[in-house]
Design a protein around this nucleic acid. Sequence first.
RNA 1: GGCGACGUGGCCAAGUGGUAAGGCAAGGCUCUGCAAAAGCCUGAUGCGCCGGUUCAAAUCCGGCCGUCGCCUCCA
Length: 480
Amino acid sequence: MALKIFNVLGREKQDFQPLTPGRVNMYVCGPTVYDNSHIGHAKTYVNFDMVVRYLRYSGYEVLYVQNITDVGHMLDTGEDRILKKAQQLQAIPMQIVERYARSYYEDMDALGVVRPDISPRASGHIPEQIKMAQTLIDKGHAYVANGSVYFDVTTDDDYGKLSNRRINELEAGSREAVRDEKRNPEDFALWKRAEPEHILRWDSPWGEGFPGWHLECSAMAKKYLGDTFDIHGGGVDNIFPHNESEIAQSECANDAEFARYWMLVGSLTVDGVKMSKSLGNVINIKDALKAYRPEVIRLFMMSAHYSNPVDYSDGALESAAAGWERLYGPVRVARGMLNSAPNTDDGNSFNERLAKAAEDFKAVMDDDFNAPKAVAALQELTREVNTLLNSGTTVGRATLEAIDQTYRTLGGDVLGIIPAADTANSNGQREAGLIELLIDLRKQARKNKNYAESDRIRDELAGLGVVLEDRADGTIWRVS
RNA sequence: GGCGACGUGGCCAAGUGGUAAGGCAAGGCUCUGCAAAAGCCUGAUGCGCCGGUUCAAAUCCGGCCGUCGCCUCCA
């Protein structure tokens, strides 16, 4: 079955046909680095990470570009958010940008988000942006006004095709200062004249200024992916004006189709409402990671289809954590059993079930990356793996390895929710040894029917976050 | 007001014409020295409401109600 993608441009599910067979050129709008990343960013980039991982699993060679916006943009107040932060922290803008770009990578790495192949920064592509603005002026799609350059939306008949907006229905921008400069209220800036106090500024044919917010994505996508490329992604909240303007600029400047498939991910709310600084309900990724392991956060982010919104709450995360424990349980058991598994073909008939799981998984992922359904396929498999591993019958090494491999590939490589191995830090070996010693002492106590002692060991360990589970073939432990 | 998404068992959620996946929570049972984990069983005659099309609709059409997002910076 071929991969299908719901194309927001046209609003229909389509067969995915890359421009070049076997290759996917993909661009995703990245963050503006002026503060720590929050769990809304986590949803967007975990979702696209899942997409990229699956495309690669499917055999595509993917070139994944995701920008870093490090050029300040206007707040309603006319302030630049990076400048504002810089003033707060008494630092220069590029320090702020560097600090939070690093913070972003830290968070993404912690969440297991595979880094993009190229992470271009807006500030490093000023010439490309100036060139594109000039091209648009030359072609009559843009005009200069008081040192700023604006895109004239009336010159683009397609303007609005992504978000289904009609120009005459749009309301004028709210900032008085710019209204006079524009021919049409809906026109947007390609280049802005820098006021004297503006620190982030570059020379241009129109005087000192800085690029408009939308232009960087158009210029950088063109540079690294070409005039036309396969997939453009981002959060739905950017569909207008950002994505819409990208299309307008690029298609008018390049005389070519921009992105062929648009994938937009649903937003994340917290306890039912949108995160915002004013509501004080912004949750940083770093804080979320203190409470939940990354695999749990990833599983939660994929608990609904990527295009749907998701609501973050402690209850929802607890639920995801419980679901994750169930999913990971048999993997842990299988890996433990591998330590003493016989080299026989006992249980090999289970390979058919594993193959079916992989088929089911692929079928639903091919249907517009239906990760929640893919997780369900793993959950159904889990029931049967548990039955096998708890049946008391001998299971040979080959079968255990096949089970491990299935979870490692589908749950690990593609979804990123099954760790490749139990995380062991430098103290891990020693800790494991100590726990094994206590398990052995408890075993002796149980043998002597000294249950008071055996329960004490189990309870004390539980208090330290180590859970013991007695199985027919011995006692295993895990960190709660 | 315009654009868009959505409304499925206690909670989350899949499901685009053929008779309701999966997870969490709950109850019962099995296993266990007791637990934990796991397995089995129970649970929506109904998928916001009202009409319509059809042999057949959660799924298509029309209307209504409600929630959320965007329309200004936002992932």
